[in-house]
Design a protein around this nucleic acid. Structure first.
Lengths: 237, 237
DNA sequence: GTTAACAATCACGTCAACAAAATTTTTCCT
DNA sequence: AGGAAAAATTTTGTTGACGTGATTGTTAAC
């Protein structure tokens, strides 16, 4: 189940879901890998799922496409994106560019309450790992990074990170070895310690290393990005 | 006519030529400050301007809004965004986070042809400054930064930079002292020299300093965000 | 003379029907 | 029986019309 506050949209006639809600719900589903790369996102199905008109759905899909989370193919429909190895490298390069600084800024700006929230979040992560609730673990793992961006108090970078974290989930789904845990929460723990000692530099370094490890655990360059290259696959040697 | 069927792996936008075109044209107009903050972007007017249906325009406006370049107000219409001082600080913080790394990566990856293109670009910048073609100077000035992101060969960060450069133009339009030139092309020149000596670290440092100077030339915290506070403005003393 | 309520106009937002394209199923021929 | 062509169905894309909400100008009342 989603731990996020359940919206009561369709309960009473409390008015429509904003398209932003739809976008966020789909983002979340992608992060939790309930929507694997390549999944067809039919308009009519989504209309029924969210109980809204087609126009709302189409706008949501357009927004998702502009963040490269869905692939919008003309006259064919919308599909969950299948990042190529090249795109995967670019996403990680962007994260390695931004997140160390975000971590440092977060340390510098975190209130004691923020740090408490981070601690609480980490406990939830531990619990999820312990209970083998894979989806919950993945979701919390991504949200940890978003929490940092939120503490850094930069809405621009927060928005960018939302996109990057979501796409990272797709990337791990495609290129991750099945055994690999997305984020070792040990790493998150070490970053939290940097908060407690108010060591921004350490947080930045740990984040950089954290991302390097994750990317290293992937198998880029082997598998193609979901849209399998059949030509090469069946080519005679 | 629709384009002839191309190779199978050409998944990128098929008929979205007009779509991205409208967005890019509006981006460009905002960068050149021909569309000042707060300008109303009436759907019907844009329909006529671009000679397309209302739906196309609405989608373009939605995309522009998702990049926070236009402000979409319910039942009132679309307006060119008026960044607040806080938003301005966030944009610059994001740029200072990303662009030094982008500059370094660009230096590391630039071909000799890339460097020649940069040189040519700088000459155009000089010419525009000399001829007092303000719009052209501003446009080229922003494009220099996009060129670096392009050379860095990271499409994710390139897209993010397009947004940030455009919003920076709005910010300078609001908070910039009239005399201030957006980018001193001397700074660009120094960065180009770092390319010639293949000194990535120097390029990163110069870029950081460059951005710091620009932000320092603004007067944040004084003016309100373009949506001028008429109440205060005309209040009797 | 000022203010407040009301009405008219205009633009945006949504809905429904229509057209075009693609996928699937059926049918016919080899 | 297998495959190819054609028809039917489903799905997407577009256009038009209509309802809603906001802004503005007018009028009436105080």
């Amino acid at each position: 189940m989603t731990a996020a506050p359940r919206s009561i949209d369709d309960l009473s006639g409390v008015d429509e879901i904003a398209e932003e809600d739809i976008v966020d719900r789909i983002f979340e589903a992608v992060v939790e890998q309930r929507l694997p790369p390549g999944t067809k996102l039919s308009e009519s199905v989504l209309c029924e799922a969210f109980g809204v008109g087609r126009m709302r759905i189409r706008r949501a899909l357009l927004l998702l496409a502009s963040r490269e989370v869905v692939d919008l193919q003309a006259n064919r429909g919308a599909f969950v994106a299948s990042p190529s190895p090249q795109q995967a490298r670019e996403v990680f390069e962007a994260r390695m560019t931004m997140e160390p600084t975000i971590a440092r800024l977060a340390v510098e700006r975190a209130s004691v309450e923020d740090i408490a929230n981070l601690s609480a979040h980490l406990m939830k992560e531990h619990a999820a790992h312990h209970e083998d609730s894979r989806q919950e673990a993945i979701r919390l793992s991504g949200q940890f990074h978003l929490l940092l961006a939120q503490i850094a108090a930069n809405s621009v970078m927060l928005r960018m990170m939302k996109e990057l974290v979501t796409r990272t989930s797709l990337i791990i789904g495609i290129f991750g070895a099945p055994s690999v845990t997305n984020c070792r929460d040990d790493d998150h723990e070490r970053i939290l310690n940097a908060f407690k000692t108010r060591d921004g530099k350490a947080a930045a370094d740990l984040m950089a290393e954290h991302l390097r490890v994750i990317e290293g655990s992937l198998e880029l360059g082997n598998k193609t990005g979901g849209a399998v290259d059949l030509v090469n696959l069946f080519k005679r040697k």
